[in-house]
């Protein structure tokens, strides 16, 4: 036993040799990441100071504006930007995403289970998923008006495809033997769905959800930029048109942070659901 372990460390000569140095290595890695980040921020600051450009404000100004715009006051009162831009944006993207997840998984399970059904709808799906969702904005404006319905539906429509395709793929990847086992134990159709199909397809489904999440943010922003009177996308465009470049940058940074947080949240959910298998977090088409 000891030897096989040693041989595998031999493949990676720099692997940790004792717990103490392992911990030290963890710390040095941790420090390395943040030091590099800090150095780059500092360089960014210095560069903007050395070569002033209105389009590229100093990061310090950007973070100042961001704090002013979104951090709640000392008495916990939410700022107008938080109320008018951030919360509506989050509401739209989460609602659209929720609709998409529910519909895409249900439809995907149905298609994945029935080859016939799949044959009927396959060309339609192949076409619809290939339409770049922003190209639909004018049509959605005509069909659903300029209100939030249009934005929520656009997000739902655009994010549905990766989840749908991955669900189909995931359902199809379940071995026949699992169904046969279920048949032998006389397990009902509904509990087969719950106990075999969904868990079996879960890794793929979640990979699709991950891809869709960044798509959802893109659609949220673009839909707010084209036609809205609130939202983070709207505020970025307004700032640009009003020459409020620090505000524009603050919006971009905020979107990065929101994306990061949503992604982290998804990772936590994924870990819980997929505790039985190690997920690679790899993107799939």
């Amino acid at each position: 036993m000891a030897l096989t372990a040693s041989i595998s460390t031999a493949n990676r000569p720099r692997a940790s040799r004792e717990p103490q140095s392992a911990r030290r290595q963890w710390w040095s890695r941790f420090a390395l990441r943040w030091i590099v980040l800090a150095v780059l921020l500092a360089l960014w600051q210095l560069a903007t100071m050395a070569f002033p450009s209105p389009f590229f404000p100093q990061p310090i100004r950007i973070f100042e504006r961001a704090a002013l715009l979104w951090l709640p006051g000392p008495n916990g009162v939410l700022t107008p930007s938080m109320l008018n831009d951030v919360l509506p944006s989050m509401g739209r993207v989460l609602l659209g995403f929720a609709i998409s997840v529910v519909l895409a998984i249900s439809l995907g399970v149905a298609i994945g289970l029935s080859r016939k059904f799949a044959d009927y709808v396959d060309p339609i799906i192949q076409f619809l998923r290939a339409v770049p969702p922003p190209a639909l904005i004018p049509i959605f404006l005509v069909l659903f008006g300029t209100g939030d319905e249009m934005r929520v539906l656009l997000i739902a429509f655009g994010t549905a495809w990766p989840i749908l395709l991955n669900t189909i793929d995931g359902v199809r990847s379940i071995e026949e033997l699992k169904y046969e086992t279920a048949t032998v134990f006389r397990i009902s159709f509904v509990s087969r769905l719950k106990r075999i199909v969904l868990p079996g397809a879960a890794p793929k489904i979640l990979a699709g959800v991950r891809t869709s999440l960044s798509l959802g943010l893109i659609l949220m922003v673009i839909s707010e930029m084209v036609a809205a009177s609130s939202g983070i996308g709207f505020s970025i465009v307004q700032a640009q048109r009003g020459f409020g470049f620090p505000d524009m940058w603050a919006g971009i940074v905020l979107l990065g942070i929101i994306g990061f947080l949503l992604n982290t949240l998804l990772t936590v959910i994924e870990r819980r659901i997929l505790a039985w298998q190690r997920s690679s977090g790899r993107e799939t088409a």
Partner: peptide
């Protein structure tokens, strides 16, 4: 999101 960079 890449589209957030469009104005910039």
């Amino acid at each position: 999101p890449s589209v957030a960079l469009i104005p910039l």
